[in-house]
């Protein structure tokens, strides 16, 4: 059986925390450049120019892209032929977050109790989603999530009779109501199916897909395009100043549903759509 040391995970996580907060993925940068070409509103164009300049400054001067360096969210696919030595996975990841956020001068944004609200001082605990998969590899995805866009999330337990139109109305109305709050242009993650908790996770996972990569099923790829069109017709525009580009992409993830249920969820990401991935 293959062995991986907890300290290896910790070092890797620390690196990932810093990388994700300094370097925006090329897929997102390309989408922002395309948005600048498509945007008609002068105020919207000015916003997109500032956003692109900000990405360059972050990279060249090593300043975090956004001051909200996020809740540290991890997706771990653990090969079942791998044995972890020298500690628990949870503690290995949390230690990596402590190290990465301290050494990277990243913001500590987590309070220890939701109502008492005392900062933990090291940005832990992380939110960790782990699944066991066949094989002897470990894949870790880190997606820091800002509070402003995370607050603009919603789950609705629709009726099966609401169908595709019910899903479209829910998603588009939710983005309309969110307006300028989640820092448009946004990426819209949509979950459809499963249970109450599953659908929220689907919406979050949808945000991890490279921007512009359509759903593999033509039906859902078309629905993504329709939602993107309807969202961009809202006129909210970059930062809500009015314009053509409210969303850069809509990604849908689905799961089988109960005969009585049609759950739907929206998880919004701001234009600083950060995620990095490593395979050990």
């Amino acid at each position: 059986m293959r062995e991986i040391k907890a300290s290896t995970i910790t070092e890797l996580v620390a690196e990932m925390c810093q990388e994700a907060n300094l370097y925006l993925g090329e897929d997102v940068v390309d989408a922002l450049k395309k948005a600048l070409l498509e945007e008609e509103s002068p105020a919207g164009k000015e916003v997109l120019k500032q956003i692109l300049e900000n990405v360059d400054i972050a990279r060249s001067e090593q300043i975090p892209i956004c001051q909200d360096t996020g809740f540290a969210v991890f997706f771990v696919e653990w090969g079942q032929e791998v044995h972890l030595t020298g500690g628990s996975l949870e503690e290995a990841i949390n230690e990596g977050v402590r190290k990465g956020y301290r050494e990277g001068y990243l913001r500590k944004s987590i309070v220890s109790d939701p109502l008492e609200r005392i900062n933990t001082g090291d940005n832990t605990p992380a939110v960790i989603h782990t699944i066991l998969v066949p094989g002897d590899k470990v894949k870790i995805t880190f997606a820091p999530k800002g509070g402003g866009s995370e607050n603009m999330s919603a789950v609705k337990m629709l009726k099966p009779s609401d169908g595709v139109e019910g899903v479209v109305d829910f998603v588009v109305n939710h983005v309309r109501e969110s307006g300028s709050n989640p820092c448009p242009p946004i990426v819209v993650g949509v979950g459809i199916g499963g249970t109450f908790e599953k659908v929220a996770l689907l919406a979050k996972k949808a945000l991890l897909r490279p921007l512009g990569q359509p759903h593999p099923k033509p039906f859902y790829a078309n629905l993504e395009q329709r939602l993107l069109r309807e969202i961009n017709n809202l006129g909210i525009g970059p930062q809500g100043f009015g314009g053509r580009v409210t969303a850069l992409a809509v990604h849908i993830e689905t799961f089988p549903a109960h005969i009585a249920s049609l759950p739907a969820a929206v998880n919004i990401n701001c234009h600083v759509a950060r995620h990095v991935e490593r395979v050990i």
């Binding site: 900000n54 400054i57 300043i63 234009h271």
Partner: peptide, 12 residues
């Protein structure tokens, strides 16, 4: 409003 998500630029 300042541009949300432009923290590096604004810090300058």
């Amino acid at each position: 409003a300042a541009v949300g998500g432009a923290g590096a630029l604004l810090s300058k």
